[in-house]
């Protein structure tokens, strides 16, 4: 009970949000649930208003709340929309909004790559499949969600756990007024300000001040600090694509 009293600002929007999303899931007849929409917006408002402290820069804050709000709303619309083509498009909006958030964190390459890979290729492929599959109109699978309550409950428990870990406690909040979130990444600024770090020739760190956020810095980081991880991921993708080619039916053997 004591715990609930301390964390009601976290628990309340989770409960409200879960109720709203579960209610908005497509089920049977089309219906417009004004109540659920209002409750959902209230939940987003509570999270946005109470848990995220403004940084002080008006433009930064405005852009952050714009992108974050669009991302959350589009994500909810994506899972609650009855038409799968619209769901795919809302997914595209989510990736665009998240790319905007990346840009705010001075990661332009990550933002562009996300747009190219997700919005430009993956969602286009989704739409491609939907156009091929939906010649006869929408089916029962689109009209009814299978387990709306269980799925929503699981999703919001996960979301609540993430927020609980990421949100600062009272004493931590004083330390990092920048975003209101605890930074899980190693502190960039301390590295950048140590003078011997940039002068040593064997240093491959990307976090020196002049390279921060540039392609050069990113390349140094990826192929210096994280070389093995990058190579491993690349090999994995190569193996997966070779596997995909091998299991494709052969045209000459009459299976296609």
């Amino acid at each position: 009970m004591q715990w609930l009293k301390e964390h009601w600002l976290l628990v309340l929007p989770m409960v409200l949000g879960a109720f709203a999303v579960a209610r908005l899931m497509p089920k049977g007849e089309p219906r417009s649930s004004l109540l659920a929409r209002l409750v959902g917006l209230t939940a987003i408002g509570i999270v946005g208003g109470s848990l995220l402290q403004p940084t002080g820069s008006v433009l930064n804050d405005a852009l952050f709340f714009l992108f974050a709000g669009v991302a959350v709303l589009a994500a909810i619309l994506m899972i609650t929309h009855r038409n799968p083509a619209y769901s795919a498009l809302w997914f595209a909006v989510v990736t665009l909004a998240v790319s905007g958030l990346f840009l705010l964190q001075s990661a332009p390459f990550l933002a562009s790559a996300t747009v190219i890979v997700y919005a430009g290729a993956i969602i286009v492929t989704f739409l491609f499949v939907l156009m091929l599959a939906q010649q006869a109109g929408t089916t029962n699978y689109d009209q009814n969600s299978r387990q709306p309550v269980v799925a929503t409950f699981t999703g919001f428990v996960l979301l609540g756990a993430l927020l609980f870990v990421l949100l600062p406690s009272k004493e931590q909040a004083a330390d990092c007024p920048l975003t209101g979130f605890v930074s899980l990444a190693p502190k960039v600024h301390s590295v950048a300000q140590s003078p011997d770090q940039s002068s040593t020739p064997q240093s491959t760190s990307a976090t020196t001040a002049e390279n921060f956020g540039t392609m050069r810095g990113l390349g140094r980081s990826l192929f210096g600090d994280y070389l093995f991880a990058v190579e491993l991921a690349g090999t994995l993708l190569l193996v997966a694509s070779i596997g995909a080619i091998v299991i494709t039916p052969k045209r000459s053997s009459g299976k296609l």
């Binding site: 595209a92 933002a111 747009v115 286009v124 540039t214």
Partner: peptide, 22 residues
């Protein structure tokens, strides 16, 4: 002075296909 000029170009061009598909 956009550091990722060409990548930005490709990311925007990759969105152009939505007009045609939709």
């Amino acid at each position: 002075k956009i550091d990722i000029g060409i990548v930005f170009l490709f990311s925007v061009t990759s969105l152009a296909v939505y007009g045609i598909i939709l």
